[in-house]
């Protein structure tokens, strides 16, 4: 969109991007508070991903749907962290949307039909096993991304 042709609009930042890439000239979504989000998404990608990997390797038959969803959530968190760190707003937005949809759909579904989710995933019960952080994270991400565009 506005990432082409080395448009410089970042005087306010007062700092030169050492990578010298013209696409990074505008204040990135991965700077400032965005860094904190990247850190949290990274931790969640690691936590959910490692847990899902172990579960799938050792006891996949117990709850194939739940474990697959955990692994999928972890991949999206990783995608989200990388996209935000690199300032790729579109991918970050899409990943936030997937996380929000996932936690809402799976959260509702897990309450309606607990039998389908015998083992907890990141998303079951709206992320209640993770202090509801999975529900808050995509909202924070969307809020941050929309503020970055306005500002």
């Amino acid at each position: 969109m506005n990432e082409q042709g080395g448009r410089v609009e970042g005087h306010a930042e007062g700092r030169v991007d050492e990578r010298g890439s013209s696409a990074e000239a505008a204040p990135s979504v991965g700077a400032g508070p965005g860094r904190v989000l990247v850190a949290v998404y990274g931790v969640f990608a690691l936590a959910a991903g490692a847990r899902a990997a172990v579960q799938i390797a050792r006891q996949f038959d117990e709850a194939p749907l739940a474990y697959s969803l955990s692994a999928f959530a972890a991949v999206v968190y990783l995608l989200l962290a990388v996209a935000m760190a690199r300032g790729n707003r579109t991918v970050a937005l899409a990943a936030c949307g997937i996380e929000l949809a996932g936690v809402l759909v799976v959260g509702t579904f897990s309450l309606l039909d607990p039998e389908a989710f015998p083992k907890a995933t990141v998303w079951s019960g709206f992320g209640s096993g993770y202090v509801f952080i999975p529900l808050v994270l995509p909202l924070l991400g969307l809020f941050w991304l929309s503020r970055r565009r306005a500002g």
């Binding site: 700077a31 400032g32 508070p33 965005g34 860094r35 904190v36 990247v38 850190a39 949290v40 931790v43």
Partner: peptide, 15 residues
């Protein structure tokens, strides 16, 4: 350390 603002330590807080 790469973030020279108040948000640098906030990253440390997450860890």
């Amino acid at each position: 350390v790469g973030e020279r603002s108040r948000w640098g330590p906030a990253v440390i807080a997450v860890a």
